[in-house]
Amino acid sequence: MPEMHLSEIYIYPIKSLGGISVQQAEVEDRGLKYDRRWMLVDEAGKFLTQRQHAQMALLQVALQDDGLLVTHKQDLLKPLFIPFEAKEGSGREVEVTVWGDTVKALEVNGNTSAWFTDALGMPARLVRMLEHSKRLVDPEYAAQGELVSFADDFPFLLIGQASLDDLNSRLKEEQVPMNRFRPNFVFVGGQPFEEDTWGHFNIGSLPFYGAKPSARCVVTTINQDTSEKGQEPLRTLSTYRLKNNKVMFGQNLLHSANGQVAVGDSIHIHSRH
């Protein structure tokens, strides 16, 4: 079998907006640095997602030296710059909800929230996770009280390129790109869906653990360039990737050490489920 190695790394600084391909990334307690540390919420503090608001796919985030740059893929708005370092006294601390969790966060500022309200055509506030906020991974799967950012459930999602290739070989109409599945890590060299079986493994020198397969939702049916919805790939995946009435694609990960990962890092499997 060819050696397996990391082929792509993605971060999604603002939950449910466009992701960023990077060549290397810092692994921190909550996941990759900058990954899902910001989130859009409604007036009640509940998180906003492409599941209900597909137009969020049209907002693209880019990393700058000192902040984030958000643009509209159809150039309908002027770009928005969000500095990493909040100005003294700007924003206010608020409680927000993401799935079943309530977390303290900092609203970035009124002007930023107004930009997103205009961009999405509905009330939206941008918040940032506070360093002292402790959102825990579901204890059913956590090994040592691991933390997670504003990501759905786990700090990382891994998908094999062979798994996507297998799916695309079954699709009768157009093929789907990897960005439909919003992974953090993509690897090459393995068999289709072999990531389902991974227990303990290393990416480069860093230890990871395959916690559970990822159950997929309607976001995978949204074209990330146009925000149009379809039926694929869920329709096809449901014919051969259904478990407990949920479509599985990709593996959620935990980790036990921080450091750096880079495209090209070798992957070594130590145990399988």
Rank of each mutant, 00 (worst) to 15 (best):
H200K: 13
L48I: 12
K33L: 13
K229D: 05
L120Q: 00
I14W: 01
S214T: 15
Y34Q: 15
D29V: 11
E194H: 07
Y10C: 14
Q50T: 12
V27H: 04
A215E: 10
G31S: 02
S21F: 09
I9W: 01
L80M: 08
A119W: 02
A211P: 09
A62L: 08
L59Q: 07
S238E: 11
T49K: 01
M248F: 07
G230A: 09
P2Y: 05
V103R: 03
V98T: 14
G160E: 00
G259M: 15
Y10R: 15
L171C: 10
K87H: 09
T239M: 13
W198F: 14
P213W: 11
P207M: 07
Q24H: 15
D265E: 01
S133V: 06
V261S: 02
T102S: 11
E232P: 12
I267A: 02
N168H: 08
T112K: 01
L59V: 02
V108N: 01
G145H: 08
R36W: 07
E173W: 11
S149F: 00
H72G: 10
I267G: 00
N168Y: 06
N184W: 01
Y209S: 13
D65E: 14
V41L: 05
L48C: 06
L58T: 06
K134T: 12
T197M: 09
V186M: 10
A124V: 06
I267N: 00
W38T: 03
L126D: 00
D42Y: 02
T71V: 12
G145N: 12
N252W: 02
G67R: 03
K15P: 05
H5W: 12
S21T: 12
Q144T: 13
G121E: 06
T71R: 11
D265A: 08
A162M: 11
L76P: 03
E173M: 10
R272D: 05
I203T: 03
L157Q: 03
V148Q: 01
Y34A: 11
E28A: 10
P83S: 08
Q251C: 08
A162Y: 07
G91Y: 07
L68Y: 02
N168L: 11
G67C: 05
P192R: 10
P83G: 05
V94P: 00
A124L: 05
L68E: 00
N202F: 14
V103P: 00
T102N: 03
F156K: 02
M4G: 01
W198D: 11
R272Y: 08
A86N: 13
D118K: 15
K134I: 14
W198L: 09
L234T: 10
E8D: 13
Q64C: 11
G121M: 06
I11D: 00
T102F: 04
N258D: 12
L77V: 09
K134G: 06
T239R: 14
T221V: 12
K87Q: 15
M129Y: 02
F156M: 09
I14T: 04
M56G: 00
G18K: 00
G45E: 07
L167G: 01
Q224W: 06
T236P: 09
T221S: 10
D165R: 13
M129D: 05
L167P: 00
E107K: 04
Y34W: 15
V41Q: 01
Y240C: 10
E228G: 01
S227T: 14
S214G: 03
K15N: 04
F116C: 02
N245S: 10
K212T: 07
